[in-house]
């Protein structure tokens, strides 16, 4: 049984080696998150008029923490998406994907597995970037809020993985690695990482509601910044349901793309 897992473990191991070489890059992601939030905070402070209006619009009184939670979560999802599509692209360019498709290894699982080390590294980055908020939540609302928000992040990452597999397949079928940039931009604006989604134009608001990452951010904010366990649990169930829908849809699409990939070749 475990013999079947060996090729995937080898992929995980090689990806861990890649990550081990990129520790400064991972640390710099934390710095970039803070720099981005810092610029927004500085700009926002200069054009803003105190926290009252912000609080009335968002329900939270600290804009820095509010945007830090959103940007940290979106940064994790962006790295997962780009690492998966990058893996697919590198394997395609080096010609290894053809060899991989001739082995008993599933290309889809290989792509998903390739991002596990990145996800673990990103959880570490997430922990570092969001540490002031976690410290605040632990001292104000206790351990349960933090654990539940991490659980929401893990559940919310399942659809991100599915997106990642689908994008990787688009990369392989249409030879278009840049498509991930567009998806990242869509995630960024639709997720409500920086603002509540009701400020978006109507049509984008509808799309945002159907995106699991939006709910991950909402749940995390209500748990970490307000300690609202009841809202957190309710949001968690919505997120879990949405994730299941994405898993089902993703399964159908991955099968379709898989047969297209086999038919067209890489």
């Amino acid at each position: 049984m475990f013999r079947g897992l060996r090729p995937y473990l080898a992929i995980v191991e090689s990806q861990f080696r890649v990550i081990a070489r990129e520790v400064p890059e991972l640390i710099s992601i934390v710095l970039i998150v803070y720099m981005f939030i810092g610029v927004l905070y500085l700009g926002g402070r200069l054009i803003g008029s105190g926290n009252e209006l912000f609080s009335a619009a968002t329900g939270y009184d600290d804009p820095f923490r509010y945007q830090l939670v959103g940007v940290s979560i979106i940064a994790v999802s962006m790295v997962v998406l780009s690492s998966m599509s990058q893996f697919a692209n590198t394997e395609m360019l080096s010609g290894r994907i053809d060899s991989l498709s001739l082995t008993p290894v599933s290309v889809n699982i290989a792509i998903a597995v390739s991002s596990i080390p990145f996800l673990l590294a990103m959880l570490l980055v997430f922990g570092l970037s969001i540490s002031p908020v976690i410290a605040y939540a632990l001292s104000s609302y206790g351990f349960v809020s933090v654990v539940l928000s991490i659980a929401a992040l893990v559940v919310g990452m399942v659809p991100v993985f599915i997106f990642g597999v689908l994008i990787s397949m688009v990369v392989l079928v249409y030879k278009a690695p840049q498509i991930v940039n567009l998806v990242q931009a869509l995630f960024f604006i639709l997720s409500g990482a920086l603002y509540p989604i009701y400020v978006l134009p109507h049509i984008l608001r509808l799309a945002a509601g159907g995106l699991p990452i939006t709910h991950v951010i909402e749940v995390s904010r209500s748990l970490l910044l307000a300690g609202a366990l009841e809202d957190g649990f309710r949001g968690f169930y919505t997120l879990a349901t949405l994730s299941l829908v994405y898993v089902a849809l993703g399964y159908i699409l991955v099968r379709r793309f898989g047969s297209l990939l086999r038919y067209r070749g890489v």
């Binding site: 402070r45 008029s49 209006l53 968002t58 804009p63 567009l182 920086l194 603002y195 400020v199």
Partner: peptide, 27 residues
């Protein structure tokens, strides 16, 4: 295709950052 995607992604980033700043003064 990279050129087309960059052109399409650009406005989305701008929208996100504009709203991210404007939320400091929702008026």
């Amino acid at each position: 295709l990279e050129f087309v995607i960059d052109i399409l992604a650009w406005p989305l980033w701008v929208l996100g950052i504009v709203l991210g700043l404007a939320i400091y003064n929702p008026l």
